[in-house]
Simulated scan of single mutants.
Amino acid sequence: MTTTRRGISADQLLAGPRGRRMLLDFAQEFGREADVADRHPLDSAAFDASYRLAKLAGRSITRFGWPPVDPEEIPSATPADVAAALATSPLPTPTPELLRSCLASSVDAAMYWQGPDGDDLLCADPAVREALRRVADRLCAAPASAWLAGGFEPGRQVILNWQEAQDPPPCPAVAVLGTWRDAVSEEEAVARRERPTDPAANWSGEWWSTPPHGLPVTCGELFDGTPSGLWFVEDALGWDRATARRVAVPSGARVFEIDGAEDWASLCRAHPLEVTALRRHDWYRATGGFREPGWAGRWLVPDWAAVAEHYDAVHLSYAGYLSAAGRAIPVEGAVPGDPACSLIAGWNPDATYWLTDLTDRGGEAVPWRRVEDADGDHSWV
């Protein structure tokens, strides 16, 4: 069932890398709309400072611009310059469509198999983060942001079938969960024996923390009736055609709502599954900062097979995603020994993973396709 919620808060948007990235994108929209020959001061400062941070942090990156720039030259722009520009830059008028576009850009930029890019490093700088509060206050005060405070809505759930995907036939959820837990436990044991314990070692593997592939995943509908899952996809593959079917949510379904880091931590605390050897290298890089190491200790994810004994589904709200995805989330008291953390990685905002079978998927099949306008902007029709 749905609950009455307050609007999303500035603190929530500033807490996580995806929220901060969305705020910077929103602030830069004014410069994109301005019909000027030169770049807007905020755009110019952010472009150069982001590149500078990425290069100094050792990221593999190059840049192009007009007039032509030396790709090896490191600009002098600093986060302080960006913070100063944010303090005085005019801000655009928030609209639901603009906020959707900014959120989609932030989701598309999420990466958990490497270190943060220049924009994420820039937004994490204390001076820039504080300057973004002005942007967050404006966004949160606008009625156009009301949908970002939404939670699970049982009457508006749809399931998407992507034309390009090659999904296997559905299996019973209990079988999918049991197979997954056995596989993770076995793979973790093998990784402990075979993988280096140095978290900075050049090693990569599975980096997501979602429930296993093969379970039903639904999403809600946005303010214009489009399924949210069309717009917000981490690690997107560029698919542009899907079919949406309305799903009848079982009466009395027990849905766990992830509204922030503590909700996720409580799942890990109650149902811990250790994945340190499997995730340490990717997640160490993903949670690092500018010349700062990431979390090098133990890593946990929720044991989804155990969670299924208490809940039918788990929903990640927009607030939960924007405030917590990509952060090393402390999980205190989950297992004896050293402190542990977890990571929300690979989730799409407003996604609901079902830990039980959804038998009623008989809604009308509505085809959707992505189109591009003359300005290069995308929409779904």
Rank of each mutant, 00 (worst) to 15 (best):
R5Q: 12
L13R: 06
G19E: 00
D38Q: 13
F47E: 11
S50H: 06
A54Y: 06
A57P: 03
G58A: 08
P71A: 08
A104H: 01
V107A: 00
L121K: 07
A124E: 15
P126D: 10
R138A: 15
A142E: 01
A142G: 01
A144G: 12
S145P: 05
S145F: 09
A146I: 09
G150M: 10
A165M: 09
P168V: 13
L177D: 02
S185Q: 14
A191P: 01
R195W: 11
A200Q: 09
W203R: 15
E206W: 14
W207A: 11
T210V: 11
L222K: 06
L222D: 12
P227A: 12
F232Q: 02
V233R: 15
V233W: 05
R245W: 06
A248V: 12
V249M: 07
D263S: 14
A265K: 06
C268V: 03
H271L: 13
E274A: 12
L278K: 00
H281G: 04
R285S: 11
A286T: 05
G289A: 11
E292L: 15
A296F: 07
V301S: 01
A305H: 13
A306K: 11
A313L: 00
G320H: 04
A324F: 03
I329T: 01
W347Y: 09
N348D: 15
A374V: 12
D375I: 02
H378W: 14
